[in-house]
Design a protein around this nucleic acid. Structure first.
Lengths: 117, 117
DNA sequence: TGAACATATGAACATATATTCATATGTGAG
DNA sequence: CTCACATATGAATATATGTTCATATGTTCA
């Protein structure tokens, strides 16, 4: 028993077929969405934006954003999982920096989009 | 009475100051995060990806993604609010297409990032 | 005008997620 | 070894958000 999803009778089947062939794999699309989801949070965008300028330790970031150390650490974890930031340890201090060159480009394009008009 | 946000004593004040000067306005960062949040959903990414290939009506999209017309319409509303898609009406059919050239570039960079290794 | 249909929308519900709080881990200094 | 400190993490809570269901809007055609 099939669930009726599209009640419309006039579907442009040729278009749908053509598009279906061109669509990347489901998993790829999921991963891309996941990446943008990570970028889609004010706190994380601020962290990334800060790291454009300089590597920073967790305390620096917490101080800059006026947030708790814990909250920052949690978000750095998410950024790290998305391979957006990397870190180096110097004694007990952990310095975070950007892991990727694309991020700057993606961010700039995003900024451009929201800045238009 | 001030809430203690960063309990750390060793903050690199010079770095924090320098970064603070370089940070875009709070509002801009909020908008950028908002844009990526819109891109950060599987359904919406699929819709955008489909529209790379061709304009489509709501029914086409619902059929392609095997989703309800209502769910698709709700998501198109979000995409429209973010100025990512535009539409034209032809009788009772509404055709959606991409509103922006950046989106393709942003998407491709995202795809590149998640495709690496 | 009225029926059929494509799309939009509001409310409700279920799920995801960001921050807080408490605490654990790991490192350097004495 | 022990204390102080920078960071990480788990559980809990509050909030945001995607989909469904029911229904409204608007257009075409008879």
């Amino acid at each position: 028993m099939e669930i009726e999803r599209c009640s419309c009778t006039v579907v442009h089947e040729d278009v749908v077929e053509k598009v279906k062939d061109m669509m990347p794999e489901e998993e790829r699309l999921y991963d891309v969405a996941e990446l943008f989801k990570v970028l889609g949070d004010t706190t994380r965008i601020k962290i990334i934006c800060a790291l454009f300028e300089s590597e920073m330790c967790v305390c620096d970031i917490a101080d800059l954003l006026n947030m708790s150390q814990s909250a920052v650490s949690h978000q750095l974890r998410v950024l790290k999982a998305a391979r957006l930031v990397k870190f180096r340890k110097e004694g007990k201090i952990v310095y975070y920096s950007l892991d990727d060159e694309h991020v700057k480009m993606i961010f700039d394009l995003g900024l451009l989009h929201v800045s238009e008009e």
